[in-house]
Simulated assay, not measured.
Amino acid sequence: MTPMIDVVFLLIIFFLVSSHLSRRENRMPVSLADSATGISETSPADDVFTLTMDAQARLFLNGSQLSTDVFSSRLPRDSTQTVRIRVDRSLAYEHLNRVLATLTDRGFQNVSIVTSPIAVSRP
């Protein structure tokens, strides 16, 4: 009985730590753009590479700031992986365009920009 209790406690700790790490990508406070259309993200967090750009055009990965040079080297090697970009609504498009161009040059095709959903009233 004691080994089973140990395993259960280890599983609880594992899930607590993994859920904390999966939420870490959303800690950077950015004001996302609103969108009435879009699709809900259904892929698991392990398959998603998330970047965050704040209002000062700083690029973050998991809460740590990246320079543009380091950014391209930190991209996943597998270009079929999903890339999610969280962008502050006040950021000029030219800054986002540089990131999108780098992703395109590296062969990434499944890139999405995260937005906040808004309620749309139907007539």
Rank of each mutant, 00 (worst) to 15 (best):
T102Q: 00
L10W: 07
A33Q: 03
R89W: 06
D88A: 04
V83R: 01
R86A: 12
F71H: 00
T50F: 14
F60R: 12
S18T: 14
A101E: 03
S40M: 07
V120H: 07
E94W: 05
H95Q: 08
S31R: 07
G107M: 09
S35F: 04
F9H: 13
S18I: 11
L10K: 04
V99Q: 01
L100D: 01
A119S: 14
D54F: 05
H95R: 13
S90Y: 02
A55H: 11
V99I: 07
S19P: 00
L11A: 05
F14S: 12
T50I: 11
S72T: 14
S79W: 14
Q65T: 14
R77K: 15
Q56E: 11
D47L: 10
V70K: 07
G107H: 05
N62P: 02
S22R: 11
R58P: 01
R58N: 10
V30Y: 04
R24A: 15
L59G: 00
R27L: 14
M53I: 08
L100A: 03
M28G: 06
E94P: 06
S43A: 14
R24P: 03
S67E: 12
R77M: 14
L66I: 01
F108S: 08
N97F: 15
R23A: 13
N97W: 04
T50Q: 10
L32M: 03
N110A: 06
Q109H: 14
D54S: 06
R23I: 08
S18G: 04
Y93Q: 15
V30E: 07
T115V: 04
R58L: 11
G38D: 09
S121M: 13
L10M: 11
I85S: 04
I12D: 01
P117K: 09
I12M: 10
I118N: 02
Q81E: 13
S18R: 09
D69T: 07
D46N: 13
Y93A: 07
L66Q: 03
P76R: 02
F9K: 12
M28R: 05
D47I: 09
L16A: 08
N97A: 12
S116L: 08
S116Q: 15
L21C: 13
R58S: 11
E41K: 00
A119Q: 10
S35A: 06
S35Q: 12
F71L: 06
T50V: 15
D105W: 04
V114A: 12
S121L: 11
T82F: 14
S18L: 09
A101R: 02
S31G: 07
E94L: 02
V111S: 03
L21V: 08
S31T: 15
T80K: 09
V120F: 11
V17N: 06
T115M: 08
T115P: 03
F71R: 00
S72G: 03
S79M: 03
N26H: 06
H20R: 10
F108C: 02
S64P: 03
L91A: 08
S22I: 12
L59T: 01
L91D: 08
S121Q: 13
L10R: 05
T102C: 00
D46L: 14
F71P: 03
L75S: 10
R23E: 15
T68F: 06
V83D: 01
R27M: 06
E94Q: 12
N62H: 12
S19W: 13
D69I: 07
L91P: 05
F49A: 06
A45F: 09
I85F: 02
A92Q: 05
A45E: 11
L59V: 11
I12P: 01
V120P: 13
